[in-house]
Design a binder for these strands. Structure first.
Lengths: 197, 197
DNA sequence: ACCAAAACTGACTGACCACTCAGTCTACTA
DNA sequence: TAGTAGACTGAGTGGTCAGTCAGTTTTGGT
């Protein structure tokens, strides 16, 4: 592990445990086993370390999502695969997501900063994958034909995000919800059963 | 308006516009038209001002939610009323919610702080209202009989939270989603149409 | 009018911490 | 071996800001 990677790892652990604001650059340096100055050799600022944590996890997230849809038999299966992947991935990388969800929004700088644009791009990509899967399901008949793809993509994204956030940052313990969530979405999305009337 | 109220109002505006960390107590005092010391006469710390913003908005939020369910004809209508109320209320109080969503999680102190407990209580109440409406709908036949009330309450809460958060803090503009959201939930919740077969 | 308590003031302070910078070390090339 | 570019160091610093406190004003009760 290079020192740069060690810094991101150490920062992830500390930010997740104590929060961004409550973690000093001295602590990050100490845990990473580097000098304080090394942080600022590799990163322009403390906030850029936060952004690196985000980038590092989002690259893996999006790769996984793309893989999840690739093998699905139809649109509905693709959506289900996306949902399952997202929930599992977030569970597995809970520390990173904790940091990203709690601290990133507070530290994205002005509305025209390049950091904001970078994050916006990532979000748009996630959204597009959902929308594609939905459009596919509408076409191949595995979902209701009147489904509004864009709006539903936003809804699904909000749903996953809201649940994950409560699991990671919430003060209330959530029961396991994966299967209930999948059922809920399937009910909402699937074409009405063509009963043999 | 008392000076204490003026402080909460000023803090809400500044926190919403610039964020909690980037707002100094001196600025809050100046905008509220009081001396710096007055802040600390009324509030133990800067974070307690943040908590006051939260409390102030949550009291109104919960009162409104209770009213929304009271007049509903059945469980499904109650859920719909809750969803509509939540979306409308957040829209109307977007500044306060922006602050609460972005900055509160980072500043809740240790896991056993009284502040955390206070927030937890509020969240539990919201959840209970949803769960009640769902249980009601399952009983009165306006929803699927096999609906898991607790899990679904969590899902609905996550859904609203996720969407609202993207609207208030997200970097992507959301289209109006109220009706699509209601439709989505209705599909997921409603009893399968008993076709005349 | 008098008093006491509550509300309020604002100059001050001390701790904190992100970031700097002048210099050292390491690895590679010619 | 000398040269050099990139990686790394860590003590130092300057600006910031939450919170304090000794004193003043306002309020309300008798």
């Amino acid at each position: 592990m290079t020192k740069k990677e060690a810094i991101v790892t150490a920062a992830t652990e500390l930010f997740a445990a104590k929060g961004f604001a409550e973690t000093t650059t001295a602590e990050v340096a100490a845990r990473a086993g580097v000098a304080q100055g090394t942080l600022f050799y590799h990163f322009k600022s403390k906030e850029n370390i936060l952004l690196a944590v985000f980038e590092s996890v989002m690259v893996r997230y999006q790769t996984g999502m793309a893989a999840a849809t690739a093998t699905a038999a139809n649109g509905m299966a693709a959506v289900e695969a996306l949902l399952r992947f997202q929930l599992a991935f977030v569970e597995e990388h809970s520390r990173e997501f904790r940091v990203v969800m709690r601290d990133l929004p507070s530290h994205l700088g002005g509305s025209d900063s390049p950091q904001r644009e970078q994050v916006r791009q990532r979000q748009a990509t996630v959204l597009a994958m959902l929308e594609n899967a939905l459009a596919r399901g509408r076409t191949d008949g595995s979902m209701r034909p009147d489904l509004p793809a864009t709006a539903t993509a936003h809804i699904l994204r909000g749903l996953v995000y809201g649940l994950v956030r409560h699991r990671l940052l919430g003060l209330i313990d959530l029961p396991p919800l994966e299967e209930d969530l999948i059922d809920f979405c399937r009910q909402a999305l699937q074409a009405p059963a063509a009963g043999p009337c």
